[in-house]
């Protein structure tokens, strides 16, 4: 318990030795993470354990072993779990909706679930989040008539209800076009109350643009934790651009400018070293994990 109180001052979210398996599959394997306030990005491919980790942090799932501390609270204790849920805004990975609901009606419903009892206050909150995600004109539209991108924005909106101190967003930018993704980034930087935000994605450029901290999760284990610049730096000296393909490279692909980009130790003839991006660092880590 003393250790836990010590952690409160240092980390907003802390996970020690977290493991979770589904049958034979190890979704999470001895994961240790320490997150501070601000935005953290979880980067990894499908099946890496991002959704499992996020659902555990959102008190919707239970680990097999390990300790979890969210905002200094332990989700295993019923009273503390309730407190976590009071501060929580959660967007699950594939949120489905009551299709006959209107946009405003659905948000009103979630607002009641978040214990906003007073009707007027609920209307204010609904108006606020609708404006934040740009769906004000769609307040009376039925959800079944919304496009995929709008439904995603609705999902983000419901997470924002009640001004949560902890926002857990599983693939929030899925299905959003670049303009909407930009708007989403602005939204995140503008949130009242400076909440702790943990979001998952497999788009490296989202990470580079919004997250001061990134955790790379591959096959249920943490492969990297640090800033995006540090992730990019792990690939320093190993990213090359050339006119031709290199069969020895770990990875190579043709960029939009017609040149081939290689990640590997052996530069092909005539290749020049380039500045690595966050995506390069991620791909390198991915490859290394796959090779093991």
């Amino acid at each position: 318990m003393d250790e836990m109180t010590l952690n409160v001052s240092t980390a907003a979210v802390q996970v020690d030795g977290l493991s979770r398996r589904y049958g034979a599959i190890r979704a999470l394997d001895e994961v240790d993470i320490k997150l501070d306030r601000g935005i953290t990005g979880l980067l990894g491919p499908n099946g890496a354990g991002k959704t499992t980790l996020l659902s555990i942090l959102a008190t919707v799932n239970e680990p097999d072993s390990g300790r979890v501390s969210v905002l200094g609270l332990d989700p295993r204790d019923a009273a503390e779990r309730l407190e976590i849920r009071r501060c929580l805004g959660y967007l699950p990975q594939e949120l489905r909706y009551h299709r006959h609901f209107t946009v405003a009606g659905f948000l009103d419903y979630v607002a009641i679930l978040k214990e906003i009892i007073d009707r007027r206050q609920r209307a204010e909150e609904v108006a606020r989040v609708l404006a934040a995600v740009g769906l004000e004109r769609r307040a009376r539209t039925r959800i079944r008539a919304l496009s995929g991108g709008m439904r995603q924005r609705l999902g983000i909106a419901q997470a924002l209800l009640g001004q949560p101190q902890l926002l857990i967003l599983d693939e929030p930018t899925a299905g959003l076009d670049p303009e909407q993704r930009l708007r989403f980034r602005e939204l995140l930087s503008d949130l009242p109350g400076d909440p702790v935000i943990v979001l998952s994605t497999h788009q490296a450029d989202d990470i580079a643009a919004i997250c001061p901290t990134v955790v790379v999760l591959l096959q249920g284990r943490v492969r990297f934790a640090g800033t995006p610049a540090e992730l990019a730096a792990t690939a320093r000296g190993r990213v090359w651009a050339a006119d031709g393909r290199n069969p020895d490279a770990h990875l190579s692909w043709r960029g939009g400018d017609g040149r081939w980009r290689h990640i590997g130790d052996q530069p092909p003839a005539g290749a020049e070293l380039v500045v690595p991006t966050v995506e390069d660092g991620y791909l390198l880590a991915s490859h290394a994990a796959g090779a093991r």
């Binding site: 929580l88 959660y90 489905r96 659905f106 679930l113 978040k114 214990e115």
Partner: peptide, 17 residues
């Protein structure tokens, strides 16, 4: 309940609901 995960993650008492 299509939005079941939201119902679980919300503070409103599941029993009452």
């Amino acid at each position: 309940d299509p939005a079941y995960q939201l119902t679980v993650a919300a503070p409103f008492s599941s029993v009452k609901l």
